[in-house]
């Protein structure tokens, strides 16, 4: 009887530790099995939309409002290095900016709203290099190029 009473706290503590461990395991499995990846995917998709919008805005903003005899603009563009933990690409073609990423659910295209004198938009930005937008031309026509600065 006395020995049984001596064991009571040990049993109680072991039981408590077991319950807490089971609880932590259950919560971890629930979070990392479904909730966290889903939230990360949501965040990546939202960030992708924002990056695409920011890139398109940077290109549109770089073009001077008034046509001048000799247009020469070079502007650095700041973009996040990764989306969803993966590097990505912004590609320009046919007055459209496209986001290309290996992460599922990240991507899309944005049509650029440019003056009629812009004859073409070309080039690619890879997220792991510093990006610049270069505009060269004259009063009647100019070209927009997305360039990477080799570090």
């Amino acid at each position: 009887m006395k020995m049984d009473r001596g064991l009571t706290p040990v049993v109680s503590k072991t039981l408590g530790i077991g319950i807490v461990l089971c609880y932590v395991a259950l919560v971890s499995v629930t979070l990392y099995g479904g909730v966290v990846p889903a939230t990360e995917a949501d965040a990546a998709a939202t960030l992708g939309d924002r990056v695409l919008a920011a890139g398109a805005l940077a290109v549109e903003d770089a073009i001077p409002n008034t046509p001048t005899e000799s247009t020469h603009v070079r502007k650095t563009v700041s973009l996040p290095a990764t989306i969803g933990g993966q590097p990505y690409e912004l590609r320009a073609s046919n007055r459209t900016l496209a986001l290309d990423s290996p992460v599922r659910g990240v991507g899309g295209t944005a049509s650029l709203s440019l003056p009629a004198r812009v004859s073409g938009v070309t080039g690619t930005w890879r997220s792991d290099r510093p990006a610049v937008v270069v505009i060269a031309g004259n009063a009647s026509a100019c070209r927009v190029e997305l360039r990477e600065v080799t570090a």
């Binding site: 939202t46 939309d49 924002r50 695409l52 919008a53 398109a56 805005l57 549109e60 899309g108 944005a110 049509s111 650029l112 709203s113 440019l114 003056p115």
Partner: peptide, 13 residues
């Protein structure tokens, strides 16, 4: 974000 960006761009143009 995409719609808002396009609306802003077109309004600016």
């Amino acid at each position: 974000a995409a719609d808002a960006r396009l609306a802003d761009s077109l309004a600016a143009r």
